[in-house]
Amino acid sequence: MSTPVLTPAARQLGTIEARRMLRHPAYAVALLYPAAFAVSALAHHEGGPAGNFVFVIVFLSLFLAYAPVTLVAANRTAAATYRRRVRDALDGTPVDDRQRTVAAILGLLRGPVTVGLAGIPVLLALQRITTADTVVRSDAVYGRTALEYLQLPALVLGAGLLGIAVARRLPLPGALPLVAIVLWLGTIGMTEMSETDLMHGRTWFALWPVWPDGATGMLPRQPLDQEMWHLAYLLGLGVLAGIVALPGGDGQRWGRWAVAALVAAGTALASWLQLG
């Protein structure tokens, strides 16, 4: 029989892991991107109305910088206690590897995912001072509901779980950059700029929201049912990464496979239904 994983020790470690992830320098480096974007736009008198400009900067910071970089922060935090020379001392303690992985997942939930959730009311508040009626088409901001913005914490969760899975299952130099490149190229490959207000079918398979369109700025709201299936698709992929990350306990192999198969089937269904 395997030992429980959600122990008091795992919960306390989760608090520490959350702090370590949030303090990871990758976030500061990633936020240089929207900062540079803001400086450049100001210098060239771009960005449209002030409200829209602020919203876009915050949106870019959260969706296109903070969320993807959680892959790095979670990976480096989980990998730091998994290197051979570090873990030797830790492996001689009663809190086993499974509990330590659960602690990393708890840290992800308490830290970066909580920040992602906190981003939703910020975006909802900021979009009140935005407008879709702008001189330049790409400056328009179309408000969305909290349900649609749930893709932000879902992205953070998925990126973090994938980062932990890579740390635990592929503890090799270069594994993380390789995974990041594959994800990046895959998402770029799936993204096709829209010529209408509705996003192209293939783009729904991309691993972030479909509304930011490089050619036309932000698209108007997409059908809510498709948005919710896209959310389920993102969450499904994230949960699959979480299942991969968690080491199996004794006698739990078939249970894990069954859960993984169910989640994979649900994700495949959501990926189909999101196409509308």
Partner: peptide, 18 residues
């Protein structure tokens, strides 16, 4: 692990020791 102080590291192991 990177980023720990001496106290934080021993405290981390103490949690691992339940």
């Amino acid at each position: 692990p990177s980023g720990f102080t001496a106290f934080e590291y021993v405290d981390y192991v103490a949690i691992l020791k339940e």
